[in-house]
Simulated scan of single mutants.
Amino acid sequence: MDTALADRLAAVDEGIAASARAAGRDPADITRIVVTKFHPARLVSDLYDLGVRDVGENRQQELSAKAAEVGALDGLRWHFIGQAQTNKARAIRAVASAVHSVDRSRLADALDAAAPEQGDRLDVLVQVNLTDDTGRGGVDPGEVASLAAHVAGCPTLRLRGVMAVAPLDEQPARAFERLRGSADAVRRVVPDADWISAGMTGDYPEAVAMGATHLRIGSAITGPRPVRG
């Protein structure tokens, strides 16, 4: 067993639990997703042996390759959290249990069209852009409700909630408080869409305080990302 990996995982889980208790929340209501971007597939297997069941990837090619190498592991859930191209929808849907980054109707339609003939509905979240940069991933907060309604009309998708990344030039707590407004807008469309995917290694305590249900934690657990050539 990789004791360093186990220690980092335990430390983050302790931090999440402490943040939840400080916010008056039950730690069991928070899902910790380990982001394994750029790490080899064997890390996913090592994490699985340590009890991790939720893993996140940013790129379709890496998601597909790792899933193929790791193989079927009972209860393992792959979360796609990166920007998605519509022409990658079928490959993403073939692996992912949840897609956190639906930010336009065309992507929702592509994921819907990629559904297998038999299978469960795909969990999806509306990604919200919390910055002033329209080139960043995510829908404008003012358009969240209309996109949520479109997603809700896709028969093979299940709208779960919202996702966002806190801007670098703003206090995370303020950004996540604004995200809660978008979460409320989505719940007015789909009342049980109560997931809030927010918080990473550097800001997950603030996300927990603002109601995050899913945290996307990378280097604090995995260690530094390998250098890519």
Rank of each mutant, 00 (worst) to 15 (best):
T36A: 06
P40D: 09
V102D: 07
R106L: 15
S45L: 09
L63T: 02
T86W: 02
H100W: 13
F38M: 12
N58Y: 04
K37F: 09
H100F: 08
N58T: 08
V99Y: 12
G56P: 00
A41H: 12
A67Y: 14
G82M: 05
L76I: 00
L50E: 12
V52D: 09
V44M: 07
R106N: 11
S45G: 14
A68P: 00
A65S: 11
G75H: 01
L76Y: 06
R42G: 14
N87V: 00
D109Q: 13
Q83V: 05
R104Y: 10
S105F: 00
E62V: 03
R90W: 03
Y48G: 14
T31I: 08
G71E: 08
L107D: 04
A68E: 13
S97Q: 14
S97L: 06
V44G: 05
W78V: 04
P40L: 04
N58H: 05
I81Y: 06
D46N: 12
R53A: 09
A89G: 04
A96Q: 10
R90G: 04
V102K: 05
K37P: 11
A108E: 03
E62A: 05
Q83Y: 02
R106W: 01
Q85D: 13
V52I: 13
S97R: 15
A96H: 09
D54S: 10
S97M: 07
N58R: 03
R90T: 15
D74A: 14
N58C: 07
F80V: 01
V99T: 12
I92L: 12
L111D: 09
K66L: 00
V52H: 10
